[in-house]
Design a protein around this nucleic acid. Structure first.
Lengths: 165, 165
DNA sequence: GTCCTCCTTGCATACTTATGCATTGAGAGC
DNA sequence: GCTCTCAATGCATAAGTATGCAAGGAGGAC
């Protein structure tokens, strides 16, 4: 932000403002749109809450809660469910050599060195059924939350590793 | 306020309701708290918007925007900054054997097979300085956004891999 | 049993966010 | 130059969310 014209109103203000909003949201704690309006004013973007509301939608910002209340966050790739599931499907299809379940424990065999990748994809997909995963070098241990969960998981994972792209 | 281990709560409705809310939010499109109130009524949880508002905070639900407006989503682990940073610290301390930077490129040497894990943790922490990472088997390439960013990163990562638990 | 404490909830309302409508200014086409 | 169109925006307000307070209920201690 070195080249900083005195007035940012009018032409081209919106993209710059969007960048500023992302930086603000990533950098500090923005709890309300009024916070954002205030910070933007300090950076000479004379906008109102209405505009900020629209910006927030356009940027896809998230509202989350921490101990002290609501707050805005920059978007996170992992939120895209489709993308996450696609990643898991790819990981399963390409690296998984076999799955078996023993009680609550799923043993997923992968190509050497691929277990962390597969485990990560499993974690990322946040299945209700999965309590957690542990990845070694070529094996991922998946701990299911219950026996029915384990059964469902086995079916789901099997169908995934068999699916075509 | 003392140690109360397995205190049964009220009518016991709250935990069940929380599970129902998570399922609703994961399963369908919940755009407002009133939507949630309506769905919960259908499932015989006679609650009001005020309670749902509190539940949403307790569950850490996210509010996001899609094309059709705001909507609630189930929480995603990567959003927990503390947890994510802890994960990165652990990964750095346990698996990283050395870091060096060449211009914008950081080369992180890890134990064999651990690079994806470390790279994932780095991605997850969403440092402003990091444009992206590529993980091989025992090496992670970290691409910084600028030379100053690269310097800051080197310092941060080094201090992390040296920290005690 | 009584008393006490803590948790949960609804109600009313304060606070925050979203949006319909009107205005403005930039750029395109003439 | 003029006029048209359209994105961007503010204003006012509707829509949605959060919260202080008080009530009700369960469990523990006695």
């Amino acid at each position: 932000m070195s080249a900083n014209p005195t007035r940012l109103i009018g032409t081209g203000a919106k993209p710059a403002r969007h960048r500023a909003i992302l930086a603000l949201v990533r950098g500090g704690v923005i709890r309300t749109q009024e916070d954002l309006v205030a910070e933007l004013h300090r950076k000479r973007f004379p906008v109102t809450q209405a505009t900020v509301s629209r910006d927030i939608r356009e940027l896809g910002l998230l509202r989350v809660h921490d101990d002290a209340g609501p707050r805005y966050m920059a978007p996170v790739a992992e939120l895209d469910v489709e993308q996450t599931m696609q990643r898991l499907r790819n990981a399963m299809r390409e690296h998984v050599q076999g799955i078996e379940f023993v009680d609550l424990f799923g043993i997923v065999h992968t190509a050497p060195g691929c277990a962390p990748l597969v485990g990560g994809a499993l974690d990322g997909s946040r299945f209700e059924e999965v309590a957690g995963t542990i990845a070694g070098d070529d094996t991922v241990l998946v701990i299911a939350r219950s026996r029915p969960a384990a059964q469902r998981l086995l079916l789901r994972l099997n169908s995934m590793s068999e699916e075509e792209a």
